[in-house]
Each structure stands twice: as structure tokens, then as C-alpha cells.
Simulated assay, not measured.
Amino acid sequence: MKNKINKYINTNVDSSTLVVFRVLFGLQMMFSLIRFWAKGWIESIYISPIFHFKYYGFTCVQSLGEYTYLLFFICFLSALFITLGYKYKLSITLFFLSFTYIQLIDKTTYLNHYYFISIVSFFLIFLPANCRFSLDSVKKEISYTNIPKWNIDLIKILIVTVYFYAGIAKINCDWLFRAMPLSLWLPQKYDLLYIGNILSKEWIAFVMSWCGMIFDVLIGIFLFSKAYKNYAYGLVLIFHTLTAILFPKIGMFPFIMMSLTIIFLDKNIHKRFIIKFNSFFSFKSNKETKAIKKGNKYTMSLLACVLIIHILFPLRHNM
């Protein structure tokens, strides 16, 4: 068993997968923050209210008043630098701290994907996502073509955990046998072009309720499957496109998941992405090294513990 663990820890894979994930994560965060700012939510949610509901243990986290705009700007600038791979460790740390601080100001703004973003950004602090196709690698004149496999698997497992527990949460009488709340929500979409009429049918709410549960519970298995991951990603695109159309108030979650689940696709797709964009931006270093060091045992232990907690902790609702 110990030999298998050591072999896994020392297994390397192409770094382009994590690098593409970094770029897409940064772009999504930039767009999300611009959207939040443009809609005036900084003022209406964080500045104007005279009272904010606090998380237990975080009453010290207060609105910064007009300086909240500065906090969002720091968060945006960090996301930009993450995308470019510039001062990456500092940028991802600042992003994690600023984004998490924003979410802790008022618990009524909580959304599952906000928490997910905080956890992903925390993990990325310890992962070498700037090892290639980054301003850091250009400046250091060195890039790494391979990284430890566990760096990528860590993110994959976290994404699958999100889907799996979303499915587990749907296994209840209201969702499956009363089609609630879809039986209330879908008829309101009667004016949608082409599909509005069918959405008003009672049976469609049951079909979508069951399909949603099955998708969430099983999609992780197929995303990890070499034979079916491309088909699974196609289902991810269909599923989240539908949720974005039918439930626009869900915000950026569908777009975040559609972009970040690209991490499951074949490494050659990520390689082509880097080659294509390198032809425009020239993120090329003078020297390429095959592998980056596996990481110290303390970092691996910390990240493993955080991941295990997030896998086991939700079980308290289902035991």
C-alpha cells in the first residue's frame, strides 16, 4: 500500500492541464467581478445596508464602506494576474483573501459556488499553476512541462464532490416524487422560444428532476473515465446551458462549471490551447525542464486533510 502511494505521489503528468485551468479560472473570476460591479451590487449589498448578518466566529469581518470598491479592485487585479501568471503566489493568495473576505461580510449573500471558488483558490495557492504559459516562467526563463499528477487530481476530486453532493441533496420526496420546486418554476418559462410550451407540462418537471439527480450523482464517474469523459463533458455543457437559460438568477455558476470541468479533458486539448495562444502572446521561456518537484509532505498533508473534510463533512446531512 505504501509503495502504491509513493508511486502515485511521484507520478508526473503534463502541466498544460493545470495551466489551462489557471487561465480559465482567472478569466471567469475577472468576468464575475466586473459583472458584480456593473450591476451595482457592491453599493446595494455591501455599502448601503446599515446591518449585515454575520457568520458565527466572523463578526469582526465588517464592510469597508466606500473602500469596498478598493477591495473588489484588488480582487479583480489579482484575478488578472492569475490569468497572466504574474507574481502568481502573491496574486492567488490575495485573491483568496479578498474574495473570501467579501463573502464573509454578509452571510445572506452565500452561494454554493462562492464557497467553491474560495476553496479552489485556496488549493491553487499551493499548486504550481504558473509553471508554464505565464509571465513568471518568462521572467525566470524556465518552464516545466510536467507536474505531479496529484496536483490535477486534487481539483478534479473537488469538482466531482460538488456534483455528487448536489445529487445526494436531490434524493428526497419533494424533489423526486413531487418535482418540487421545478413544477413551480418551469411553467413560469412559458414564454421561452421553442421550448416554452413543453415546460408547462407537468411531466417535464418530473423528468428534469430525475435527470438532474442522476446527472449530479453519476457525472463524476464518467468524467474520470478515459472512454467516456468527452461525452460526459458534452453532457456538462448541455446541463449547464439549460440551467443558465431556465434559471438566469443562478448567476455565474453554470459558466464557471462549464469552463473549469475542462480540466477532465485530454491533455492534448490543453496542449493545443497553449500552443494556439503562445502564437499570439509568446509566453515562451528560454529553457524547459521536464518535471517540477513533487512538493513537500506538509503541503500534501494539508491539502489532503482539507479535501477529506470537504468529502466527509456533508455526510452529516445524510446519516
Rank of each mutant, 00 (worst) to 15 (best):
Y46N: 00
C75I: 11
D14K: 15
G85P: 07
V207L: 15
L307D: 01
F164M: 10
S279I: 05
N197C: 01
I219S: 01
H240I: 00
P187Y: 02
N296Q: 03
L315P: 00
F177M: 05
L260R: 07
F133R: 13
P49C: 00
K229L: 12
V120H: 04
Y86C: 12
I42V: 14
E141R: 15
P248Q: 05
S183D: 11
Y101L: 00
T145E: 11
D216Q: 09
A244H: 06
R35H: 12
L303V: 07
N268A: 04
L315G: 03
I142C: 04
L94F: 14
L80P: 08
I204F: 12
I309R: 05
Y231N: 13
W41V: 03
I34S: 07
P314I: 12
F95T: 13
P187F: 08
Y114Q: 15
N12R: 13
Y190T: 04
I292E: 11
I250E: 04
L64F: 06
P128C: 08
I34K: 10
V207P: 04
T241C: 12
W150E: 02
V23D: 04
L303R: 02
V23Y: 08
Y115V: 00
R35G: 10
I155C: 10
Y231F: 13
E66V: 05
T93H: 06
Y114I: 04
F53W: 10
Y165H: 10
H310W: 01
